[in-house]
Measured scan of single mutants.
Amino acid sequence: MSIQHFRVALIPFFAAFCLPVFAHPETLVKVKDAEDQLGARVGYIELDLNSGKILESFRPEERFPMMSTFKVLLCGAVLSRVDAGQEQLGRRIHYSQNDLVEYSPVTEKHLTDGMTVRELCSAAITMSDNTAANLLLTTIGGPKELTAFLHNMGDHVTRLDRWEPELNEAIPNDERDTTMPAAMATTLRKLLTGELLTLASRQQLIDWMEADKVAGPLLRSALPAGWFIADKSGAGERGSRGIIAALGPDGKPSRIVVIYTTGSQATMDERNRQIAEIGASLIKHW
């Protein structure tokens, strides 16, 4: 067993022997301040990774656009098919120029040779490549099948209805392509620590998230040296922004954090800054 596999296998073990965790309302004060600064709703939840206990939450059962955070769930569904012998990570998928959609920095470079399922998941999570996500959605049967996968996990809230990039439209009061912070946090925890996926697939999923290259201005910008984070960000229309993450000190994750916002007129930089400040408060009061 590799060191990384050992780390993920012992996530519940280490967490069980940690000192009790206590909620700190100071972080919620910052979440509410972010709402004021952005002029928009902000949803927040913080779960203990081992027990699933909610440590703090704000608007945990209000719907927010998922945006690209759905790509972690998508690759979880792909990995479940791999575990069941219905898919192979090494299978190569070929596609054409007509398949390319807006923001496809990886797939646009491989029109000639195609990409493997493993490479597509890596591109979808680490670079948020939209064509990679659409190609992977095709392998599982489309958005409705991802929703069905989530329902089978016990998540009857999260739903995907459309493809990239239309799913980022974020129309107010439109339930399409949305989740709730509580539902997303619980589902992410199941994917990373539950028995739904094999140990190898859980490790692969967290490795992809740990290698995320496009979430630097968010929670990662607030992390002290030595902290662990595996995350996936999302951005959408109407001032929408979000991030889902597993993080913790001492090089291992111990909490799940989900943050979503929508309806702001603020710039992307300002949305990023507010999420980073929430992260800084979380870490300060850990």
Rank of each mutant, 00 (worst) to 15 (best):
S96Y: 11
I11P: 05
E87P: 02
T147S: 11
Y103C: 05
K144A: 15
I93N: 03
L47V: 14
G114Q: 04
N272F: 02
E270G: 08
I45C: 13
I278K: 00
S221V: 11
E164V: 00
M268G: 07
V214K: 08
R271D: 06
N168V: 06
G279F: 05
A280F: 10
A182D: 10
M180P: 03
A77Q: 14
T158H: 01
I3G: 05
A182V: 15
S201C: 07
L100K: 05
A225T: 14
G85T: 07
P253N: 08
L137E: 04
N168A: 08
R220V: 04
T107R: 01
M153K: 08
R273A: 13
S96L: 13
W286P: 02
E102Q: 15
R118Y: 15
V82G: 05
R162Y: 03
R159G: 04
K232W: 00
T193S: 15
G76K: 00
S57L: 09
E46I: 07
L135N: 03
K53H: 13
V8Q: 13
A276K: 12
L136R: 00
G154D: 08
F58L: 11
L199A: 12
L205C: 03
L192E: 02
N168E: 04
A200N: 15
T69N: 02
D250E: 14
L150I: 13
L199N: 15
D177K: 01
L196Y: 15
A133V: 02
G114N: 05
G263S: 08
Q265C: 10
H94M: 14
V42S: 03
M1T: 02
T198I: 06
L146M: 13
A185Y: 00
S240W: 01
W227G: 02
E102C: 07
A211V: 08
E87Y: 05
S96H: 11
A266L: 14
R118H: 15
D212V: 04
Q97Y: 15
W208D: 05
I93E: 05
S264N: 07
L197T: 05
L89E: 06
S201Y: 05
L79A: 04
P217Y: 08
A185Q: 01
E35L: 02
V117N: 04
V42L: 13
T193N: 15
M66H: 05
R238M: 14
L47R: 03
E61D: 14
D269P: 09
Q4E: 14
F14M: 11
S264F: 04
A225M: 15
A16R: 04
M115L: 13
F64S: 01
G90K: 15
Q86K: 12
A211L: 13
I45G: 03
M127K: 08
A266Q: 12
P217L: 09
I256T: 03
A235S: 08
I171Q: 15
R91M: 06
